[in-house]
Amino acid sequence: MKLRGAVIVFLCLGLTSCLAATGSQVNAEPAVSEGKITVFNPMGTPPPIQAKQMAPRLDTLEGKTIYFVNTGYIGTDRLMDVMSDWFKANYPKTNVVIKRSSGGMTGVDKALWEEIGEKGDAAIIGLGH
């Protein structure tokens, strides 16, 4: 049995905003004569998030099995093809497996996840688009 938690990398396909900077800074010039008041914070409550143990990284890709998971958005199949071609050319001893997830962009394909945990060493998941 291979690593239960394979190394996973998500592809952020075209989501330019993922890493964009936010907000703008404005210099505050408080009125000296104004009195202080207290106001409520308007934010809601984020969900609790339990950080899971991430799988250790691979020391080499040689002889390893990497899954390319297509989550179904338009064109992701072609992208996975050209990416896997690159791996085949540059890492000929790496076993590349391309799979289509039935879970789409937000759902879970339990059977595929179990297969990757069983047979894979790493997974690259294309989120689209």
Partner: peptide, 17 residues
Amino acid sequence: MPGIRVQYFRGPVWAKT
């Protein structure tokens, strides 16, 4: 896995050969 590694590149993917 909030720290999951994300690889970014210029999109979009669809409609490209």
